[in-house]
Amino acid sequence: MLNFVLFGPPGAGKGTQSQKLIDQYQLIHISTGDLFRAHIKNQSPLGQKVSELIADGQLVPDAITIAMLEEEVDKNPEAKGFIFDGFPRTVPQAIALDEFLESKGSSIAGVIALDVDQEELTKRIAQRQLESGRADDQADKLQKRIDEYFSKTIHVLPYYEAQGKLSKVNGIGNIDTIFTELRAVVDQY
């Protein structure tokens, strides 16, 4: 199974590039953000709790996130592989993902980090907010999410680097050029 983590701060282009990777390699995209938004839209009890947390710019607790992710993987037993987008955000989540995949006889093949500076992130998310109106892209909440990424989430990268699984790709520039660089990484596996 070909499993990848697509890593980067909010607005780095993970969603855009994930779709291109899905089309190219027939992988299943699992975005914790999409899972959260689906639960919120359906007004499930979990969705209501997630909504409160996201509205405050907080991360959803590991136990909730991991349970949702495992459920999604289990729904796709015939998948060729998965792209994990927005997960893991902490080393304990990375360890939990490794353990879960190992229990399925699989593992993370590689982690691809999209490098994008804060100025570009701010520009992209302002544009995305105009186009989609996502509540989590409002300026005050967005800054919390970006700060959270650069103060906490980025520390997951050394965990994967120590395993020899980390590749960095410049996330600024033409979408197709970035995708070509991503494909070069994926094609190594």
Results as ranks from 00 to 15, higher is better:
95 I>R: 11
86 G>W: 02
97 L>G: 10
140 D>Q: 10
98 D>H: 04
63 A>H: 00
121 L>W: 09
78 E>R: 03
101 L>N: 05
70 E>F: 05
120 E>Y: 01
104 K>H: 09
151 S>F: 09
69 L>I: 03
147 D>E: 11
157 L>C: 15
82 F>V: 00
154 I>P: 15
90 T>V: 02
119 E>S: 13
103 S>T: 08
135 A>M: 01
147 D>R: 14
72 E>P: 03
86 G>M: 00
106 S>C: 12
145 R>D: 15
163 Q>L: 08
101 L>M: 05
126 A>Q: 04
121 L>K: 13
131 E>H: 10
136 D>M: 01
159 Y>R: 15
68 M>A: 06
79 A>V: 03
74 D>G: 03
103 S>D: 06
91 V>Y: 04
121 L>P: 15
135 A>G: 11
91 V>M: 08
151 S>V: 01
133 G>V: 00
163 Q>S: 09
150 F>R: 14
61 P>F: 00
80 K>M: 02
137 D>C: 11
163 Q>N: 14
71 E>A: 12
91 V>L: 06
118 Q>R: 12
125 I>M: 10
96 A>S: 10
117 D>N: 14
79 A>E: 03
139 A>C: 15
60 V>L: 12
103 S>I: 00
160 Y>S: 13
144 K>A: 15
82 F>Y: 07
61 P>H: 07
65 T>L: 03
125 I>R: 14
141 K>A: 15
114 L>K: 06
